[in-house]
């Protein structure tokens, strides 16, 4: 699969003291939704800003859409929604979109056409002549998404895209992201709300204290930790006694196994013991579990504090 972003050994030290990134390497495939996870201050936003040339890396090698990182003309093919973005409050929604579209090199006619479409897409058509300063946080976020999509980018970098958006809006944004992915665009999302990413995430990387602790596709990362829950009625065999959880008459047993075939012999043995199987369901590791596992791998599970590392490597 072709890569949208491939970066290797990214370092960023602020004021020779704060080591925000300490050798981050990762690969984002084309046409995927890539989730960048990590605790506060892990360096996620710094990494995204480096990709968008807002921050200079101390050291970096890699490409974005086939061109070296920092290549300005490539940014015409990239849409970006920064965290806590602020639009000029005196501009109307339409004026703001014209401004950002023009900065991306769009001609007036193209801008007009796309602004209509984007305002419609984010449900803000009725607000086009209103000043951005009068908008709620959620409405500003919608305009933010519209400006990121305005120049029809191949790659989207979204930093906390659902920040301040109501539950209905969040769902709309999720559906929109899936639609954009299905159209062949690549989306990199930086978010804290793991439950929102759960259903749409294809690839992920967990950044902890400036390093990638865990990276891969969701399937790759969760396959080794797949579980099966077998629920049955009746007194189970003694050999699984200690592993069961009883809930009234219903008993459940958690069985490890990458695929269904692996657990069939155990189900047979439960049945042979006179029990009735009432349900068998697959349990995948959640993003939250993955996130916590990444923290454990990075040695940051207990007593960790948010923020970038200071000084030299420990």
């Amino acid at each position: 699969m072709p890569t949208a972003i491939e970066i290797c050994n990214v370092h960023k030290t602020f004021r020779k003291k704060v080591r925000a990134l300490r050798g981050v390497s990762m690969r984002v495939d084309h046409g995927q939704i890539f989730c960048l996870l990590g605790p506060n201050g892990a360096g996620k936003s710094t990494l995204v800003k480096i990709l968008m040339t807002v921050i200079h890396a101390s050291r970096i090698s890699g490409t974005m859409l086939g061109r070296p990182i920092g290549h300005k003309a490539t940014l015409r093919r990239v849409g970006y929604l920064p965290e806590h973005h602020r639009f000029p409050i005196f501009m109307t929604a339409e004026q703001a979109l014209h401004f950002y579209g023009a900065l991306s090199g769009m001609r007036r006619r193209a801008r007009r056409r796309r602004i209509d479409a984007m305002l419609d897409l984010v449900g803000m058509t009725g607000w086009r002549k209103h000043r951005v300063g009068t908008f709620s946080k959620g409405m500003q976020q919608r305009i933010g998404i519209a400006q990121a999509l305005l120049h029809d980018p191949e790659l989207l970098l979204l930093d906390e895209p659902t920040d301040g958006v109501d539950p209905i809006g969040r769902r709309e944004i999720r559906d929109l992201l899936v639609q954009l992915r299905d159209e062949g665009r690549t989306i990199l999302i930086n978010s804290h709300i793991l439950s929102e990413l759960e259903t749409i995430c294809d690839q992920l990387a967990v950044v902890v204290k400036g390093r990638v602790s865990l990276e891969g596709t969701v399937d790759e990362l969760t396959s080794g930790r797949r579980r099966w829950v077998v629920a049955y009625e009746g007194a189970g065999p003694e050999w699984i006694e200690e592993e069961t959880r009883k809930d009234g008459r219903l008993t459940q047993v958690m069985l490890p196994g990458a695929d269904a075939a692996e657990v069939q012999p155990i189900i047979d043995r439960i049945r042979q013991a006179g029990c009735t199987i009432t349900a068998v369901s697959e349990v995948r590791e959640s993003l939250e579990d993955l996130f916590m596992r990444a923290l454990v791998l990075a040695g940051e599970d207990e007593g960790s504090t948010p923020g970038a590392a200071k000084g030299e490597d420990a």
Partner: peptide, 9 residues
């Protein structure tokens, strides 16, 4: 505000 402009071509 600055990110929205600096991230352009």
């Amino acid at each position: 505000a600055v990110e929205l402009v600096m991230s352009r071509p």
